[in-house]
Amino acid sequence: MSRGPKAVAPDLSENEHAALQRLLRRHGTGQALAQRVRIILACAQPEATNLGVAAVLGVGRQTVALWRSRFAAHRLEGLVDAPRPGAPRSIGDEAVERVITLTLEEAPNNATHWSTRTMARRTGMSQTAVSRIWRAFGLRPHQAETFKLSSDPAFVEKVRDVVGLYLAPPDRALVLCVDEKPQIQAAQGTAPTFPLRPGQPERATHDDRRHGTLDLFAALDVKAGTVIGCCEQRHRSVEFRKFLEQVDSSVEPELEVHLVLDNLKTHKTQLVHDWLVRHPRVHLHFTPTSASWLNLVECWFAVLSRRRLQRSAFTSTADLEAAIQGYIAETNAHPKPFVWTKTADEVLANVARFCKQISNSDH
């Protein structure tokens, strides 16, 4: 049984067909418009039905019928969203542009950056309107970030070396990211913490009692996501060599060991060098100076701090060490690798692009 009148083919002209193809190829075309263009091109095929086009493109039959009829009535203009109902805009494009220009190019008197209130007073808008404009254009004047560029003369070579280990590790070898997290405080508040309650966050005192510090040595298995770790009172080359012994005994003897680590002096002492001579299967790969973001164990340190250390109370260094070892055990029981995705060329291109931006800055 027929479900309605037979769908009429769009009968595209050569110019219309070319215009639709250009829309599909253009990078700036939105997904919604691109889907409508594909619907019209499919409907232009001989014997194309709404149901058949819907099945091929994975959309509803009513959607195909809607855009087929809109195109038949208004041609290319019919593929654009119709004006939506509601009150007209009360803030014009010129006012929006003024807010953006002021935000990006000027600063308020007696302040380093704009707030929604100061901008509202300057432009005569409401604070809510300023907030909506900033959100729409991704402007956050209250936020600031810091950066540091590596001055290592071997920056390019070290990036390629470390990233190459992440993306294409050698056969029959284990890649470990090694670093120290020094001066972890065993501290507790001067008063008990008030627990979380409905309508009230957890509350703790701003000051604390300190019971000593520990230094954590950790080696993250890049492929497996497991961690080898130990806590020491200090982080000299003596403790680092002891940790290397622990790493060496934890890895199967038939595997080569590649360690990614930073340029700390304790990693390059004669004591460590002599140990490496006696253990030729262990190879060190140094990240560039001021480029700790290349060492994936830093990601694990951040997770450890956020999930286990920041809001905990420790009455002694033994209590702190037990908490750290417990978290390491939990990590190894349910490992989740930190997967590196960018190639060395992509990393270097990003750094070069950023260097070009700051070199062209007026500041």
Rank of each mutant, 00 (worst) to 15 (best):
H27P: 12
R25P: 00
A54E: 14
C43D: 00
V8Y: 04
A9M: 07
S13F: 05
L12R: 08
E14M: 11
L23P: 01
G58E: 13
V59C: 14
C43V: 01
K6W: 05
L57C: 08
A32D: 10
R3C: 09
E14Q: 10
I39S: 02
G30L: 01
V37G: 04
E14Y: 12
T49N: 05
L41G: 01
I39C: 01
E14N: 12
P5N: 12
A55G: 15
V56L: 12
P5C: 08
A9Y: 02
A32L: 10
V56C: 07
V53L: 13
G4V: 04
I39W: 04
Q21M: 03
Q45F: 15
I40K: 00
G4T: 04
R38L: 07
G58V: 10
R38K: 07
P46A: 11
N15Q: 15
R36N: 04
R3Q: 13
G52L: 13
L12Y: 05
Q45T: 12
A44F: 00
A18E: 12
L20I: 07
A54K: 09
Q45D: 13
E16V: 02
V53C: 11
A34V: 07
R36C: 05
V53N: 08
C43Q: 03
D11W: 03
L24E: 03
L41M: 06
G28E: 14
V8I: 14
L51V: 15
N50E: 14
A19F: 00
R38N: 06
Q35V: 01
I39T: 05
L24I: 09
A44T: 00
R38C: 05
P10Y: 05
R36V: 02
L23C: 09
R38V: 06
E16Y: 10
R22N: 07
Q21E: 10
D11R: 13
R22W: 03
T29G: 02
K6Q: 07
A48H: 11
A7T: 05
A48C: 04
Q35F: 03
A44D: 11
R22P: 01
E14P: 09
I40V: 09
N15R: 15
T29W: 05
A42T: 08
D11E: 12
H17L: 13
V56A: 14
Q21V: 08
L24G: 03
A19Y: 01
H17E: 14
R36E: 01
L51Y: 14
N50D: 15
A42Y: 10
